[in-house]
Amino acid sequence: MFLELPMLQRRRSSKWVEYPSDVLPAFVAEMDVSLAPPIRDALLEAIEIGDLGYAEPGGVFESFAGFAKRRFGWSPDAGRMRVVPDVMTGVVEVLRVLTAPGDGVVITPPVYPPFFVDIREAGRRIVEVPLADGELDLDGLERAFVAGAKAFLLCNPHNPTGRVLEPERLEAVATLAERHGVLVLSDEIHGPLTLPGARHTPFASLGDSRSVMFTSASKAFNTAGLKCALAIAGSDEVDAELDRLPEELQYRAGLLGVIASEVAFDQGDEWLDQVIDEVSGRHRLLATLLAEHLPSVGYREPQAGYLAWLDCRALDLGDDPAAAFLAKGRVALEPGPGFGTPGRGFARLNVGTSETLLTEAVRRMAAAVA
Rank of each mutant, 00 (worst) to 15 (best):
L5F: 09
V17P: 06
V17S: 14
Y19N: 14
P20T: 09
P20A: 09
F27Q: 08
V28F: 08
A29N: 11
E30G: 02
D32L: 02
A36P: 04
P37A: 08
R40L: 14
R40P: 02
G50N: 12
D51C: 13
G53L: 06
Y54W: 13
G59E: 15
G59H: 10
V60C: 05
F64W: 10
A65C: 07
K69P: 05
R70K: 10
R71D: 10
P76D: 05
P76N: 08
R82H: 03
R82D: 01
V87H: 14
G90T: 12
V91I: 15
V92L: 15
V94Q: 08
R96L: 15
L98T: 03
L98S: 03
G104Q: 03
V105L: 01
T108Y: 03
P109M: 08
V111W: 07
P113N: 06
P114L: 07
F115E: 05
D118A: 08
A122P: 02
G123N: 10
P130K: 01
P130H: 00
D137A: 07
L138K: 05
D139H: 12
A149T: 03
A151L: 12
L154M: 10
N159F: 11
L165I: 10
E166L: 14
E166N: 11
R169M: 06
E171S: 08
A172F: 06
T175S: 14
L176A: 12
V184D: 06
L185S: 04
S186H: 04
E188S: 07
E188Y: 00
P196F: 07
G197W: 07
G197C: 08
R199I: 00
T201V: 13
T201N: 08
A204D: 12
L206P: 00
G207F: 03
S209V: 14
R210I: 12
S216W: 11
A220D: 11
N222R: 15
A224H: 13
L226R: 05
L230Q: 09
A233P: 00
G234Y: 03
A240Q: 13
E241L: 15
L242D: 00
E247M: 02
Q250W: 13
Y251C: 06
R252V: 10
V258E: 04
I259P: 04
V263N: 03
Q267T: 12
E270R: 10
V275R: 13
I276E: 02
I276Y: 09
E278C: 12
S280A: 12
G281A: 04
H283A: 08
H283D: 07
L285M: 11
A287K: 12
P295R: 00
S296T: 14
G298W: 01
Y299Q: 04
P302D: 04
D311P: 01
R313F: 07
D319N: 10
D320F: 02
A324L: 05
F325K: 06
K328D: 14
R330M: 13
A332M: 04
E334S: 09
G336N: 07
T341S: 11
R344A: 14
L349K: 05
S354G: 07
S354V: 10
L357W: 04
L358K: 00
E360T: 13
R364F: 01
M365D: 00
A367G: 09
A367I: 11
V369G: 12
